[in-house]
Amino acid sequence: MILLAKLALGTLGTVVAAGGVISSEGFVSVRVHEKKPGGTHVSLILPAMVIDSGLHFVPKENLRDAAEQVRPWLPTIHAAIDAMKSEGDTTFVEVREENQHVTVATRNGAIVVDVDDDGETVHVSTPLRAIDNAIDQIAAAGPKN
């Protein structure tokens, strides 16, 4: 009985620790809702760590071009992301047209893009830290200077 309890405790501890690690980077959320009858509804919530891990499996030669383009802008990107992290929630861009509404904002340490038009609504939220890490990984994929 005690052995079972120890096993259960061990399993629970592992699950909690794994959950903590997986959610440490936050979550990427994507929601697409087509407004037409029978339209597609997609709602996806992924641990941001998946981006990080996923990039490890992308062949480096496929990231070489992106790495070369992004590398000169790394200091700018890092400075922008750091500043966005230290700011409170901010709506950076809002575009309102007759049939469309687009916002780009930071909410709780994530960059959030919302698009609402006649055909569909799209919501994408990505933690700033995950973007920062992903960009670092992409930049590291290019040839070393």
Partner: peptide, 13 residues
Amino acid sequence: KGEMVSVNLPLSL
């Protein structure tokens, strides 16, 4: 056209 574009940038950024 009923269009509006708004950009808000923290000066510290």
